[in-house]
Write a protein that binds this DNA or RNA. Structure first.
Lengths: 276, 276
DNA sequence: TAAAATTTGTACGTATGTATC
DNA sequence: CGATACATACGTACAAATTTT
């Protein structure tokens, strides 16, 4: 009898996550989304550990990670607690729940973004509540203010980070506006991967006010509810980051042109297909 | 001095995952995708533990989970090994890497699917390799054969499972055809959530051959490369599951009509917008 | 018939991290 | 906040089973 050959399939290594890392990640999610701002205080250790369903030592371990990353500060005493000191999250705290993807091919993330984000924005326009619009405006405001501060000066590290935060926060706000938890989860995964690109790319922009403009244009488009406007504004916003990334990386995104071309072709073909 | 109020934001409990659970999940992924078929043997424990980057005891723990779930069978000896015994994965093994989402609102998943899947299919049409098409054909074949077996009979439990497996496998094949790991990961998340719906819904179909037809139509559309055809076929495929689910659940999906209406409106507006 | 090779099965010591008090 | 107890995963080594040579 011939020996049954084992499968030629190869598995990718698993990435293990410790509870305290998951907890730290969850807290950074809230900070990234702008749910807690710089200077504000998080709930007490007691309260947090209950909310997150872990023991207090585990939560303390998580906080230690955040302190070490410079994201929060812990003060003792009766009016003390865990205070947010920075809204930019170091990449070390971003890589946990999404293994499997080689960091090199940022192409996949960019392409996926171009594929999904316009439709997320369209859906957001349908379901956004006043609170959602307020979050979006908040993000745009942050971007505008940061931009004004560096009007005629070179952008500083801190300024670049703020611009990144504003963009990320805007994206999260849009995703949440869909009122669809599945969509939010998927966008979260993509945004984490994009953050690194963002900080690297924003320094390459000849004029950071462009970034602010794409944000406010997107906001106006979503408020208008017109799909064509939304698509155009979203495409412009994505395109800006892509260009900046290409300059920073010194090479073109492999698939950028193909996807854009197909999108255009599909648009014109859609209406003419039946006539042939 | 007034006390700084802690944030009113509430955190969701974290869900801890053990390494053996992650490993078990990863193996089921390969089975679900059809990389290993029933009766075939997986690599040896030694090889698997190296590939997956875990110790052999941990891998054995994972295998134990799979054996208990009836997915694999372990035989000792020189020609022994880990053999696949079933291609339908119990839901217990499906829920690990995706916490946070209440199982009830299947609406979110369906809506997200309708939002993303057509564009994934379009991209697949651009990048699919012969191997990808072979995987798709494989899935269609399974569906066709199962369908033929229950030509004039009522569908059995086993038959319903096979139809589910075929649909899932087709979807994974399409996602992989995009050659975009980000897209694959996102689709994986969605498909896991959909599986439960699939098995429940497929029994409600008055004629299961409809399901097979939507698959082969989608395959033909992707082979043709015509975006309009792809959109139509994908919409039909999604629509069938949605209808079946509505019958099974006894209520309409909340947002189904809204999303479809907006998609149509956007399609017609897109081409006429610039002419005004 | 017997020995060799391959693969699963079992066990122990260590280290790390989490939970309880 | 600290200390102790417990659970879990790892690495290694060896034993048992079965087929091939």
């Amino acid at each position: 009898m011939t020996r049954i050959q084992p499968t030629r399939f190869v598995f990718q290594p698993v990435q293990l996550v410790r509870p305290c890392e998951v907890v730290a990640y969850r807290i950074t999610e809230a900070i990234r989304a702008g749910d807690v701002k710089v200077g504000e205080r998080l709930p007490s250790e007691q309260s947090l550990s209950v909310q997150l369903g872990v023991s207090r030592p585990t939560l303390r371990e998580a906080v230690k990670l955040l302190v070490h990353a410079g994201v929060v500060q812990v003060l003792p005493g009766s009016s003390g607690g865990i205070f947010v000191t920075s809204e930019s999250i170091p990449p070390e705290l971003c890589g946990f729940p999404l293994p499997d993807l080689p960091l090199e091919d940022i192409d996949s993330v960019m392409e996926a973004r171009r594929l999904f984000e316009p439709h997320v924005a369209r859906l957001a326009a349908i379901y956004a509540t006043p609170a959602d619009f307020e979050r979006m405006r908040d993000a745009v405001r942050l971007s505008t203010e940061t931009c004004a501060k560096f009007k005629n000066k070179k952008i500083s590290d801190d300024g670049a980070q703020r611009m990144t935060i504003a963009s990320t926060r805007f994206n999260i706000a849009v995703a949440r506006a869909t009122q669809n938890s599945m969509v939010v989860q998927m966008m979260e995964v993509m945004l984490r991967r994009m953050e690194v690109v963002r900080t690297l790319a924003v320094r390459q922009l000849p004029d950071i006010s462009q970034s602010t403009k794409t944000l406010s244009d997107s906001l106006r488009a979503i408020e208008s509810g017109d799909p064509a406007q939304i698509d155009a504004a979203t495409a412009a916003r994505i395109g800006l980051l892509e260009s900046a990334w290409e300059m920073a990386a010194g090479k073109r995104l492999r698939r950028r042109s193909i996807l854009q071309a197909s999108a255009v072709a599909a648009g014109s073909k859609k209406t003419s297909a039946k006539t042939t």
